[in-house]
Amino acid sequence: MERFEDITNNFPGGLYPYVRIVSLYDEHPFEHEFFIRIAQSFPFMEKLTINNRYAQNQKESYKLINDKSNLSIVKYNYLIELYIDRAHDDYIEEFLCNTKTYFQNNILLDIHYKALERVTHNFTRDSTRINCMKVNELFLFGKLEYSKSCKDYFPFAIID
């Protein structure tokens, strides 16, 4: 099958090499370990949609662990489309921070402008800059005019 939709925290894992389109939905938070399991289960995933408005529970403990050691970085080698316009800021941070997530160049990113502004600290945050530079198409919701700092933060992106 090409699609696997509405995956929840109860997803047991497994290997699905033919799945290219994945959507995640839950009414409970997704933690970093869940994203590791998703990336391993769908190694050739090209499109990912996250629908979860609940904050991560282990975010603070993740920061403490990450400060003391190298926690696993989730790798999405084939991801080309990321839809996080219906996600809590924690998941936006999860994907945009290069200390948590790695993806190749040429990403289409679908996101709300205000959430992006918050997570990138008004387009000045260094830890999100690397992954944002990999975006080549940026679909922003909620604002008609974008700041120069936003355009500079996404130097290779066409902004719609």
Rank of each mutant, 00 (worst) to 15 (best):
E5C: 12
D152F: 07
Y25D: 04
F42D: 00
T124A: 03
D90Y: 09
Q58H: 09
E93I: 08
Q56V: 01
T120D: 10
F30N: 02
Y78M: 03
K151R: 15
I92N: 01
Q104D: 11
P155H: 09
I84G: 00
F11V: 07
D90G: 01
A157I: 11
Y78G: 02
Y76D: 05
L82R: 06
E93R: 06
V74S: 02
S127A: 07
N52L: 04
Y102W: 15
I107D: 05
K59W: 11
I84E: 01
L79F: 03
F103Q: 05
Y78H: 09
T101K: 06
F103A: 02
Q58N: 15
I7L: 15
Y78K: 03
N106P: 00
Y78N: 01
K47T: 13
D89R: 08
I50E: 03
L144A: 12
T99D: 15
F123T: 09
R20S: 12
Y91R: 07
S127V: 14
R3T: 11
M133T: 08
T124E: 04
K114I: 09
A87L: 09
D6G: 10
Y78W: 03
K75I: 06
V119S: 05
H112I: 06
V119R: 03
C132W: 04
N106W: 00
E27Y: 10
Y25E: 12
S147I: 08
L24M: 00
F4V: 07
F123W: 10
I92T: 10
D89G: 03
I158F: 13
K59F: 12
L15I: 14
L138P: 01
H28A: 07
L108H: 09
T8Y: 05
S23Q: 09
P17L: 02
E46I: 04
E94K: 00
I80Y: 10
D152E: 15
A87K: 07
L109Q: 11
N51Q: 12
E5N: 14
F30P: 00
I36F: 03
N70R: 10
L71A: 13
V19C: 04
V135K: 05
E2R: 13
I158K: 14
D89C: 06
Q58G: 02
V22E: 02
S149M: 05
N66F: 05
S61E: 14
R86C: 09
E137W: 05
L24F: 00
D90I: 09
Q56S: 14
Y18W: 06
E81W: 04
